[in-house]
Nucleic acid binder design. Structure first.
Lengths: 211, 211
DNA sequence: GTCTATATGCCGATAGAC
DNA sequence: GTCTATCGGCATATAGAC
């Protein structure tokens, strides 16, 4: 039990520091100090820093992906039952809403999202690869369903638009950006709920735009 | 002259390596080796690694920002002359097209864009701050002009939509993402010209979406 | 399982010869 | 202006006591 407890303490501290300082800039010394465990514990429990990074990403991303895939399948099956094509908006909702809901589920989840948004633009290397391999099946399914929902649009146009959408999402999810650029005198509601709805309106409109 | 030459060699090598490996992961030893200059040259010419990072960003971003601001002012003046409001699409074009055109202007420019896309999601710290301070006036002007172009939309809705647009742009501009996720069997044209046009269609539709 | 102590190596930065 | 040599520090990782 104390092993699992130590592992959890390390994962939590790592999640927080990786989000705040970046993967490379977080040293095992910082990390173990924040976790209240011994310096040697990371190598004992995870083998290396790199495998710790992988564990941090997998702990959250695997269940989140499973949820997104389930929701997407739900949309697909409902549309089939009703003998119609899936709608662009419901497809996007199935993908986007679980992520926004997850972010609200706690401080750790928020740190995780920050960290994941960054993996998108991380240099070539382990972190980027870990992330891309885990996320690929979800992107594939999303792409296929968008193609079904938009049968009159060329495939490459749909691909680009999905690409733009994912970029916007990675950026929007990252709360650190939110208040950074707010113009003076604008009383902006930093409300994740309304932002999620606004985001879906925005990307649905972008994806459905006439060529 | 040999001073400027050394400085340029350092800036070029730094731009390339910062894009490829990240700021923190690029050591002065790597950097000076690639530039073909002595290890001590960075500290001699730039003072520190941090000031080198700043110089790398400023060299490209200052002229690019000046161009974007000029174009935005051009749109504003034209609309005033013609006694009408600026259009959403022409505002977005004035902001976006110079950036896409710049990226096509050479290998170094492409590296620079990769590096800038990343600054967006960089952890708190110097790099992020340097970037945000240089980009802020451009974002302000863009925001004001979008508000003029969309007088019926609430200010905070416009702010969020601009936010989404900037995220999508940072992601779309980064060529490294482009072919990463292409589904098998999709013969995708990786053509920056057509992507730029498609991008403007997409974000214009998103910004103009009815509430 | 958890600790201390340490091995080994790269880091940014600078002093001082040329 | 450019070089070599080196300082002091922190990195990851591990060996071995408890």
């Amino acid at each position: 039990m104390s092993q699992n407890n130590t592992q959890k303490k390390i994962l939590d501290a790592a999640e927080h520091l990786f989000a705040k300082e970046g993967f490379h800039s977080t040293s095992l010394r910082m990390l173990t100090r924040e976790a209240g465990v011994n310096l040697a514990a990371v190598n004992y429990h995870f083998g290396s820093k790199e495998e710790l990074i992988k564990a941090v990403i997998e702990r959250r991303l695997l269940p989140l992906n499973r949820l997104r895939i389930d929701k997407l399948h739900g949309v697909k099956e409902l549309a089939e039952e009703e003998g119609r094509l899936p709608g662009v908006k419901e497809v996007l909702q199935a993908f986007i809403e679980p992520t926004f809901a997850f972010r609200k589920s706690g401080k750790g989840a928020q740190d995780f999202i920050t960290l994941i948004s960054r993996s998108f633009s991380e240099p070539e290397g382990t972190v980027r690869q870990i992330f891309l391999e885990l996320i690929r099946p979800v992107f594939r399914l999303l792409y296929e369903m968008l193609c079904e929902a938009l049968p009159d649009l060329p495939r490459d146009v749909i691909y680009w638009r999905m690409h733009f959408t994912l970029g916007a999402m990675g950026h929007a999810m990252n709360t650190r950006h939110m208040s950074q650029m707010i113009p003076a005198g604008l009383d902006l509601k930093i409300d994740a709920e309304s932002m999620s709805e606004q985001f879906i309106v925005y990307v649905t409109s972008g994806l459905e735009a006439p060529i």
